[in-house]
Design a binder for these strands. Structure first.
Length: 178
DNA sequence: CGACTTTGACCAGCGC
DNA sequence: GCGCTGGTCAAAGTCG
């Protein structure tokens, strides 16, 4: 994992979300640790997480900003080697690893990663035809911080009502628009 | 019984 | 070429 265009989502005012069970935190330092000291991972805010709006039945297609969705891992040789979907990582300070974001996830793997005493868990969206993945990892430096990395966009509405998390996501979209 | 988790094995990319 | 590491697969187990 070196230089994925992992945009870091970010909610600057936690005030109106104070009733939420999750505390969205902003911690660039911890994030850069997770990134492996890439300083510019903070530039791109979340742009296309494919989060259904609160009415829950249409997917906003925020396509414009990140058109770097077909990310080319130009490491060696030919250039057009590996196509990777954009990833969107964000941190939450939570005691539980799994955020109930309203989608149904199936765990398909778990790995011990280097420089981290906590394993990383791999989840896939169980909705048919939707191959969104996410990784969940707890920081070893601060075990209260859970880093969730989403890959891909959901092609379907949210599957169960989680007003809280939708609230958070809606806020994120507001910040993105700024 | 279906959906989900666990976990070891496998594979590919990358650095040396 | 080799070893390390991240990501995925799939069989077995668990749970409601």
């Amino acid at each position: 994992m070196e230089n994925f265009p992992t945009s870091f989502s970010y909610s600057s005012s936690a005030s109106s979300a104070s009733h939420l069970p999750l505390n969205m935190i902003i911690n660039p330092h911890a994030y850069s640790e997770f990134q492996g000291s890439k300083p510019n991972g903070f530039l791109g805010l979340m742009t296309n997480m494919g989060v259904p709006s609160s009415d829950g039945n249409n997917v906003p297609q925020s396509k414009s900003l990140v058109d770097s969705d077909a990310e080319v891992k130009s490491s060696k040789g030919k250039g057009d080697k590996k196509i990777r979907k954009p990833r969107h990582a964000f941190q939450t300070r939570s005691h539980v690893d799994i955020l109930d974001d309203g989608y149904r996830w199936r765990k398909y793997g778990q790995k011990v990663v280097k420089n981290n005493k906590f394993p990383r868990s791999y989840y896939r969206c169980t909705h048919q035809g939707c191959n969104v993945k996410k990784q969940v990892q707890r920081l070893s430096k601060d075990e209260g911080i859970v880093v969730t990395t989403y890959e891909g966009m959901h092609s379907h509405p949210i599957q169960k009502s989680t007003d809280n998390f939708e609230h958070i996501l809606n806020q994120m979209q507001v910040y993105t628009a700024c």
